[in-house]
Amino acid sequence: MAGLTKEQIGGILARQGILVAFALFMIGFSIANARFLDPDNIMGVVRSSAILGVMALGVTFVVISGNLDLSVGSMMSFSTIVVLDLHDKIGPTLAIPAMFAMTLCLGALIGFLVGYLKLNSLIVTLGMLSAIHGLTLTYSGGKNMDIADKAGTWFGVFGQGDALGIPVPILIFVLLAAGLGILLAKTPFGRKVYAVGGNRTAATFSGIRQARVVFSCYLISAFCVATAGLIQAGRSLGSQNTVGQGLELEVLAAVILGGASLMGGSGTIFKTAIGVLILGFIQNGLLLVGLQFYAQYVVTWIIIILAVWLDIAAKRGRLWSPIA
């Protein structure tokens, strides 16, 4: 490559590595199996990634603000169970806002504990993971929740419907990503999220009310979780109590894969979406080339480590860590 020094190439790789990796995957898989680039296949992948994706959008805000959210998985189970239960009790039109309100209350509680009381977000959300799981089980009495009249409800539209020829989950994901992407990149609030995550002290010294910013990020995360719960509930019209279990870490994996630093202050909605799609396409691509479903976990593991490793290696200017 003429005109580019080794450092410049390294810099590009460090900044756009995720896109390069994404492109390589797509090329690799499409060579290995022609069906991979089939529009139906692509649509299917995006569709099945929508729930994870919607949750990852919210967690991106939390991570950029310098915190963690491990509670999104069990919170999603909660939303799903609640909306399914309320569907039969008060009807879908009331059930949806009621479920959103309840989920946002949980988000507000976490936001209060982490933002205003300044408690460690890892432990708080770990505790909330357990607590919300217990709340869900108590709510449902440990039983699965099903809509009684599955044929007679329009509620399934959120999970199964099509609008303008596009599956509704994809539509929700894309619209939400666009909206939140603009919020993060273009508004004063978004700027403050980066500032608080980049240096909480300096942000406070600049007159930013960091507690309010952190609180808002958890509200956004809860809103996304509620949306994901809506899609999940609409998709199956019935659910187990543990439907979101383990998703918190997969979501985090997607966000990290998108290049957001766990230290806060960096990451974008666009890159998180790419991270989500990478996870989705790896899963799909591995299946198409004949590997079993669970091989994706192993591949995801390797990709996460490599992605983060190369990122910090580029920043410190050497591949291996200086740890003695």
Partner: peptide, 14 residues
């Protein structure tokens, strides 16, 4: 209910 355990432990942790 055994389910309450998760709730209680989470709250105690916080």
């Amino acid at each position: 209910n055994t389910e309450t355990v998760n709730l209680v432990i989470g709250l105690i942790l916080i």
